[in-house]
Design a protein around this nucleic acid. Sequence first.
DNA 1: AGCGGAAATA
DNA 2: TATTTCCGCT
Length: 702
Amino acid sequence: MKTPAETEWAYKPESSPGSRQIQLWHFILELLRKQEYNDVIAWQGDYGEFVIKDPDEVARLWGARKCKPQMNYDKLSRALRYYYNKRILHKTKGKRFTYKFNFNKLVLVNYPFIDMGSGRGVPQSAPPVPSGGTHFRFPPSTPSEVLSSSEELRSPGVFSTVARRMARGSVSDCSDGTSTNSELEEAAGAEERAAGPDRAFRGLLPPRLPHDSLFRLYGGPNPAGLPRPAPRLHPEPLSPFPVSPLPGGLLGSTLSPALTMTPTPHLAYSPSPSLSSPLLGSSHFSFNPEDMKHYLQAHTQSVYNYGLSPRAFLQYPNIVIPQPHRPATDKSGLTAERGATERAERAATAAGGERGGDRRHHPPLAHSAHHHHPQPPHSTHPHPHSHPMYHPLHLGEEPPHVSPFKFKLQPPPLGRKQREGQSQSKPRQGSLSSGSGSMSSTSGLGSSMSFGSDLSSASGSGVISASSSTQSLNSAGLPKIKVEPISDIESEEEVEVTDISDEDPDERDREFELFSLRRSRIPNHHLSNGTAASHHPPHDEDLDEDVFKAPAPPPPGLMPFFATHHIHSNAHCGPPVLKSEPVEPVESSTPPSLTASSESTQTKCIPLKLRFKRRWSEDQRMEASQEESDDKKVRPEEERGRERQSNGCVEMEEDGAGSGEGDSPPPLAYEGSLTTPQASHRRASAELHRAAAQLSLENKDC
DNA sequence: AGCGGAAATA
DNA sequence: TATTTCCGCT
């Protein structure tokens, strides 16, 4: 069945380096989103806060996923503590086994699911998001509001997430059969299966809900069997999202970030989204009515499908549709296998027993085996691009594959450990420390995000045209922005997630100022073509935007629209690819037209931004207060940017199908922004967008 | 419980 | 790079 592509992506090299295995926070999020695990771990308290009700179980599950039978809470918690520095998480003091995601800072790019609490049907948990109202706001009901985007800008919370990938990561199998996919996956798989056709989604990790399924997700029995004990199935109303209308909507289910919470979400949103994006953004594009229509439609759909908030869309720059490079070849079977595997795994685990033991004495296991990873078969695939152009989308069914995430998180902190200097030898740090002088005071945010490029780039994916620009700070602290070209091909970037946070609110403000300044000055961009990377350092305000990146490819119908603007066929990729605009020369990357528009956009934006910022700042503070400590270690570094890439075509493609997203390209604001110097903001946004795009892409396949 | 350094691993 | 493992300290 499915999508070859789906699988494919999973194995892509891109991920290679670390190959990204599933990361703990992703896993946590995954658990949180599933009701089945409600007894094990659940959202609680405010925004992003969750409680590990059964530490041993969580550890077991994690160990299963990672094929680390010896995993126990102690170890897991250590890993969690590392997140403190990264600012992905922090501990809720005074509450046992309670941690909190720093969503504000974190942009989850991939995870769509983050529906924190609210999403779940579980009332108990506090909805993460909205809770205090702090960070998030819901999307405006009115379109006009939307347009204003102001809000949108700020929205911190959004995570865009893209999620998909988890599953793949999972593939690991422990050789012994133990672990492998987590149960989660199993469950997920089951769900999906049940869903039937939806399979397209299946690529995504978790089973997100396929359209219909959305509503009920969990309700269904799991064929696989529920792994966990407690799971209860709730029928879930949870997702607010309606089903996606589109067939194409595949992606759909995926994202649903926190946003979901919104009350009546769909409805509410719907209107807005459409409005928002296209028009506004489009600065440079000219739309025909038809196009607009399509666009809107697409957008809307995508919103629904993904559960994205409208805001997300706003931002997108031009999106382009990627082409699928990668072809999907095939890979079928994985899913099924997984399920089996998991079970086995579970069993094994159980047998092994004891995970929780104490750490100190463990038997040294030889390890379980570890895996031979199976990887995939796909290697073979002939070639990727088989699809015809239009890719992927096949709306009808399609494959979604998941995509890998591209992002990485991390900004690591370096921090404190000065020691490191010695011991570790990490080069970078040194700089930090030294550097600190200049920047020190502030933040450094450390986070950087970068998007992967996969998506965007090349492969047609080009999602974002403006793509990423990033800033980097100088020592002076001024950020520079670079624009990356979408280059295409090469660049694949990854996305990093990060937190973008900011550290202090204050800083942000500053940034603002800087921003302004910056704006005026346009940096030099460098861009090479290919990749450029950049980063920005601190500032995060931008984050707020969060958002997603663009999604991917639009559904076929849409295509025309896109095509108009962006599609190119690429030779390389094979089939025609869509790309976003080619990169232009650097800053210019944006096409002139864009530029112009962008500027205007910017202008507008700024003020809004400022406003937001303030709000944001407040919010952040609140959070910050909790944290406070953050200083600690983390420090950001700046830089990194990097990218990678290659293949451009690749990944994204898939999504096209997903398309829904793609649709949304919104352009506006973003573009301009991207283009411009404001980089920080933009960067974040851009990244997000990319991420989103990736998602989309993922879904599709090449 | 929880923190975090250090070293080991993949 | 992201944990995993071990462990001392609070």
